[in-house]
């Protein structure tokens, strides 16, 4: 049977094409445009070549922001992934506890980013906030607005509170899809609890965990609103992660060229790391 060839079908793609152009391609190209030129307004541009890229890549400020970002993302991944799996493992599999746990777990995910930031800001205030006040009352010298260590601690705690649920829900879904026969077989084979986790649960959760790690990596690497509301990047620049630094450069200092170059570099780093993560985690999948 011959396939009917009808190129008119392409017309159906036009709406999507227009939509994607407006929400992705056009803004991205504007950024590309800015990144190679200098402007002082009035739509007057002068060609700068790769100057902004070189400047950003060599700047200590960018290196420091990137370092803070890498540190932050690593810490929250190291906490949230094991913690999420752990919580998912202890959640009930049937009975009335299931909906209760699921609803409790979904709650933080439903709260808007800026509200989370504001909540934690008030919660952690050293004089009136419940957390801040309690910590000081029991003898810790805690003040997230002035001490970098405390600011980091609070930001990480906030992110763990907000996003661990995502890992929990994904892991829980993965765990629930395991056939009971696997546990029964393991019981008969005399497997220890650790062996069951290591050889049954973890491999069966691999796909959802890959997803969880990718999502958490991307989100945390691009985090903006919550730390902006909580610490505003301070004290000093100690919690100014990449996107906070980028906004400072673009809107605070109005250095549009360097900021555009930085956005592109930022974008490529995220893309590259996602690709690396994904290929690493899916490496064995393709072999078999």
């Amino acid at each position: 049977m011959n396939k009917t060839i009808n190129q008119k079908a392409w017309y159906f793609v036009i709406p999507v094409f227009v939509l994607v152009a407006f929400n992705a391609a056009v803004p991205l190209m504007t950024v590309v445009n800015y990144s190679f030129q200098e402007t002082f307004g009035n739509n007057v541009f002068t060609w700068e070549g790769t100057r902004w890229f070189k400047q950003i890549l060599q700047s200590d400020r960018f290196h420091a922001a990137l370092g803070r970002q890498a540190m932050f993302t690593s810490i929250i991944l190291l906490i949230q992934i094991p913690l999420g799996i752990g919580i998912a493992l202890t959640m009930p599999k049937k009975g009335w506890g299931v909906p209760v746990c699921l609803i409790l777990m979904s709650m933080p995910l439903l709260i808007p980013w800026n509200v989370v930031g504001a909540m934690w800001n008030i919660f952690a205030l050293p004089d009136i906030g419940f957390l801040g006040h309690t910590l000081n009352a029991i003898g810790f010298d805690y003040n997230f607005t002035q001490q970098p260590g405390d600011a980091w601690f609070t930001t990480i705690l906030m992110d763990v509170w907000h996003w661990t649920s995502l890992v929990v829900l994904l892991s829980y879904a993965g765990l629930n899809s395991i056939q009971p026969a696997y546990y029964q077989a393991a019981e008969i084979d005399g497997a220890s609890r650790w062996a069951i986790f290591r050889y049954i649960e973890l491999p069966k959760m691999k796909k959802v965990l890959t997803l969880a790690i990718l999502l958490r990596f991307m989100d945390s690497f691009m985090i903006y609103t919550e730390p902006f509301v909580l610490t505003g990047g301070g004290p000093g620049n100690t919690t100014a992660f990449l996107s906070i630094d980028l906004v400072k450069m673009a809107l605070g200092q109005f250095d549009l060229g360097p900021a555009a170059a930085m956005s592109l570099i930022y974008f490529f780093i995220v893309l590259l790391l996602c690709w690396v993560f994904y290929s690493l985690m899916m490496r064995n999948e393709e072999k078999s």
Partner: peptide
């Protein structure tokens, strides 16, 4: 069991 139970990673 009815369905093959194997340890995937081994």
């Amino acid at each position: 069991f009815q369905f093959p139970v194997i340890y995937d990673t081994m």
